[in-house]
């Protein structure tokens, strides 16, 4: 019984970490059919910025997080301006942007490696201690991550549903031409969506590194898993991807406790392939015609 609780507790934490990244990726894909393969490097950048501002500059934690989020959001907008914008609407956009962001991610990762070195660093933004709950040990850090992630998702959901800019983002995702005819400047929406995704990547990077440690290539695996979750949910489905993230987190935790950490990624992939053979558009996906 205790094992079950342990699995649920760590599974939800994992899922919460994934959800932050997944939602950012889904938002970008939904709005502009772009798979941002530099998301993992953005996560690393966010994690290292937090380390740098806290340990290097001695800023208070809240300010450090803010700087990390701001820097990653700016880099996200820069990805739009320098890489995505020149090829928007051109033939093969989805393939080209995929490859270009792989390259950009590699550049960022190498830059981080040069700036901070290859040795793992501890993330200073980790909270020690834990709560005992009926024989189950719950680290405060995990609870914090779960709460933070859920609060972020709620805020993002409200923003997308209620605010004028959120409406514009949804409109762009659902029908680009129609959004333009309503007066939405879709270039601005694209830049904004990539900036939001960048900011979320920073938070995701901080949480991931607080559970393990900082490494220049720390974002690679979580990014691929976040993409897998996006695929399971149906690319671009924002609310669905949160549900899928929590589910995949639980699945991974269960595999880790029962079979072993080594096989969790492989089984995850197997699960995705099975899901896609069953539902090629993803669980929450709908077949859509050609998206222009």
């Amino acid at each position: 019984m205790d094992v079950l609780f342990q699995i649920i507790a760590s599974g939800l934490t994992l899922g919460a970490v994934y959800a932050i990244s997944t939602v950012g990726l889904a938002l970008v894909f939904g709005a502009m059919s772009m798979l941002n393969m530099s998301h993992g490097a953005l996560m690393a950048l966010g994690g290292y910025m937090a380390w740098f501002t806290l340990t290097g500059l001695g800023l208070p934690p809240a300010l450090g997080v803010l700087v990390a989020v701001g820097v990653c959001a700016a880099v996200g907008a820069l990805i739009y301006l320098l890489i995505a914008r020149p090829m928007l609407g051109a033939e093969g956009f989805e393939t080209r942007i995929f490859i270009a962001t792989i390259g950009f991610g590699a550049v960022m990762e190498s830059a981080i490696l040069m700036a901070f070195g290859p040795q793992p660093k501890p993330q200073p933004l980790a909270v020690q201690g834990g709560i005992g709950l009926g024989g189950v040990h719950l680290p405060v850090q995990n609870l914090l991550i779960l709460g933070l992630s859920m609060a972020l998702m709620l805020a993002l959901g409200l923003f997308l549903q209620k605010s004028r800019i959120g409406m514009a983002i949804r409109a762009t995702a659902q029908n680009r031409d129609a959004a333009r005819l309503m007066g939405v400047r879709i270039g601005g929406v694209y830049a904004l969506v990539l900036a939001i995704s960048g900011g979320l990547a920073a938070i995701s990077g901080i949480t991931v590194s607080s559970l393990s440690s900082l490494l220049p290539n720390m974002g690679g695996d979580p990014m691929l898993k976040a993409f897998i979750i996006c695929v399971v949910a149906g690319l671009g489905r924002v609310p669905g991807s949160v549900v899928a993230a929590l589910f995949i987190g639980l699945f991974e935790a269960a595999v880790q406790y029962t079979i072993g950490v080594r096989f969790s990624f492989a089984l995850l992939l197997l699960l995705v392939i099975v899901v896609l053979i069953w539902k090629p558009q993803g669980v929450f996906g709908r077949h859509q015609g050609v998206r222009l």
Binding site: A171, Q174, A178, A179, L181, M182
Partner: peptide
């Protein structure tokens, strides 16, 4: 536009409100 190009996952009211964006 031809073919309406509505926002398929929005409600009627949201579609109308987008008109006054």
């Amino acid at each position: 536009p031809q073919g309406d190009l509505l926002f398929p996952d929005m409600t009627v009211l949201e579609n109308l409100r987008m008109g006054a964006f």
